[in-house]
């Protein structure tokens, strides 16, 4: 049956620097899965995809309704932090997924991307071009990006990646707790966005504040 669908893409840094915290992040994603997957209304209106990136990027959980899968793949660490690989795979994946949903007759809303990194890109010369292709105003599927930086992430880079909102973890917040708060914010966003408004639409809802994070000013154009 044709439905209104809001796709969420979670793009997570799984470089070596995440080694000590990746289990906590995987736990947070399992919580997200349980909360959304056991909520028929929200699971019906949203879709979820997990992309992990390090030296390259891979789709760990292809786009799905979270009620349709009984588990999601874990993030596993490996070397390097290629933002460029992440943005390239993300654009290709969105293009393919949305095309598939539309051909099935669904009404698809602009995808939402939750991007998380704990370090600086190891491809500083090339990632901006991949990013520009992802947010190209001429590309009608360009997603709304909410960027989160923790640990050694560069505030300016995180601000630049986020198109609608960006958050940087505060110094006093340990990475484990920061990832927990990231997962909570993501879950809250998916659950609240999965409710049709009184006007009959889906609206992307993002927490204005995330505990332990500073909200960065995102450039308006």
């Amino acid at each position: 049956m044709p439905e209104q669908i809001l796709p969420f893409y979670v793009v997570c840094d799984q470089s070596y620097s995440m080694a000590d915290h990746v289990d906590g992040l995987n736990d947070g994603l399992r919580e997200l899965h349980r909360a959304v997957g056991t909520d028929p209304v929200v699971a019906d209106k949203t879709r979820f995809c997990l992309i992990g990136f390090s030296g390259d990027a891979e789709v760990l959980q292809p786009l799905c309704a979270l009620s349709d899968v009984v588990g999601i793949a874990d993030l596993v660490v490996s070397p390097a932090t290629s933002f460029g690989a992440a943005f390239t795979v993300l654009r290709e994946t969105i293009e393919r997924d949305v095309g598939r949903l539309k051909s099935a007759g669904h009404r698809v809303y602009r995808p939402a991307v939750f991007f998380l990194s704990d370090g600086q890109p190891t491809d500083p010369g090339t990632w901006p071009a991949a990013y520009d292709r992802l947010v190209d105003p001429a590309w009608h599927l360009r997603p709304n990006i909410i960027a989160f930086g923790i640990g050694d992430a560069d505030e300016e880079t995180i601000r630049r990646v986020g198109t609608v909102r960006a958050f940087m973890s505060q110094g006093g917040l340990g990475p484990g707790l920061a990832l927990h708060e990231f997962a909570r914010a993501l879950t809250s966003s998916v659950v609240s966005s999965g409710e049709v408004t009184e006007a009959g639409d889906l609206v992307l809802r993002i927490p204005r504040t995330v505990s332990g994070f500073t909200a960065l000013q995102v450039d308006q154009v």
């Binding site: 899965h33 349980r34 997957g37 056991t38 028929p40 699971a43 309704a65 349709d68 899968v69 009984v70």
Partner: peptide, 23 residues
């Protein structure tokens, strides 16, 4: 209990086709 966690038996479960998550 669904997926190892307590869950209220809301009416919504009766209005959608059964899914693997609440099989």
């Amino acid at each position: 209990s669904i997926a190892g966690a307590p869950r209220l038996l809301e009416l919504q479960f009766l209005l959608y086709p059964r899914r693997p998550m609440w099989r």
